[in-house]
Write a protein that binds this DNA or RNA. Sequence first.
DNA 1: TCGGTCACG
DNA 2: ACGTACGTGACCGAT
Length: 501
Amino acid sequence: GYYLKPLQASLIRAGIQPKGWAFDAMLAGYVLQSGRSSYPLPDLVQDYLGERLPTEDTTGESGLAAYTCAEAAACLRLEQVMSQQVAAMSCADVLYRIEVPLSEVLARMELAGVAVDVAYLHQLSDVLEALLRAKESEVYTLAGEPFNIASPKQLGQILFEKLKLPVGKKTRTGAYSTDAEVLEQLAAEYPICRSILEYRELSKLKSTYADVLPRLVHPSTGRIHTSFNQTVAATGRLSSSEPNLQNIPIRSEAGRQIRRAFVAAPGNRLLSADYSQIELRLLAHVSGDERLLQAFADDRDIHAATAMLLFGVPEEGVTPELRRKAKTVNFAVLYGMSDYGLSLELGMSVGEAHAFIENYFRQLPGVRRYLEETLAFARQHGYVTTLYGRRRYLPEIHHANRNVRQAAERAAINSPLQGTAADIIKLAMIDLDRRLRQEGYRARMVLQVHDELVLDAPAEEVPALAELARECMSGVARLRVPLKVDVEVGDNWAEMEKFMG
DNA sequence: TCGGTCACG
DNA sequence: ACGTACGTGACCGAT
Ligand SMILES: [Mg+2]
């Protein structure tokens, strides 16, 4: 078929459980070319069969029937051609063991939805409204006139022309940048910038979450049903939309108040199971770097261990500041960051940042070797792969423009790690979903946030479920490092306690 | 529809 | 001399 997930949702609602699914042309299109922006059936028919799907004429019953039959016939022929190509690029496992079975799991998760406390969000919205009005007056007073704070254009004129604040950076189009980084720089000297930052934080929370989520509660289920998009992210990750439930705030205290609105069903609890440092563990696995492998074998705090290596200090010499620097360097490696990028991030000279990176590679030579081999592979073949063979094409790896080319190089380094992590959690979801059904749990998987699964579970199932989730998530891949999974339980998604086991 | 901004992993 | 870390989605203002 093509885009089976809605059909799977209908069948689940009707209580019909097919044994399995053979083929989905949309998912095959994604596995063959994950960089496309979309996979309309007429495009697939044109590109893989060299044929034209008849133009959609669904006027009247006969038109609809004719077009639907043409679609069905096209899917059957697409399966022949596309499955050959998928096999030829060694992606059969990715399509048939990951994407096709995952589709039905996602359908179940979307149908299950997640409960939110609507009354609480309405209260929160009112509080945010009051705080915003106060913050707004503060800004107007400091500016000497009212204006639209939400307009970066007006804000730039007020700050950099009327008040003559020093211009930090310009945007790509040459306008004054007023982003958080610029305002943070100025905030110590100019209180209006602090006020604007606070206004922005509250405004974001209100307009994107507090005011929107209540409207998306489905009238018949009383829950929010996101869409998990399976063919959007070029790396193999899922995305979530309408609403996006993969970017619910957590980092700031005010943000966590939004997250508190996500609750368990009555009598239930929320269980969250997330992979600990999965991308760095994968880096250890694929690079084979001895010290990185050992650090994870010993279940060390990886950022602290990196700090000890980088700065040559004993464990008790790792200050929070050194750990923070080491953490930034670890991220820098995962993202293929340059010494220039690292210098900006750590507020040091390019030379110092360069020395940091050199020292990192001297201590972890396997990592340097892996990164260089990955880049060489990308240049030779024009693509990179995950541990399971998922491919991402990077044609811009040979681009004449250096910025464009270097962006492709960073993607070449990051995609195998981000993509393998995506493969692993997808496999875990398929396994966990099967176990939940086979073993008669009433718990439902409700959310996936890249390295985290959230389940809504009867309180009495929690102890067994915690073990099951751990087992499925850590056992799905046998690597040279353990895949550590942290489990937390709570009545809402913000206030969770570690589950021991 | 685009640019700027900001929420998440 | 140059240089915006990887991957997403949503909101607002301006056009
Ligand atoms: Mg984690």
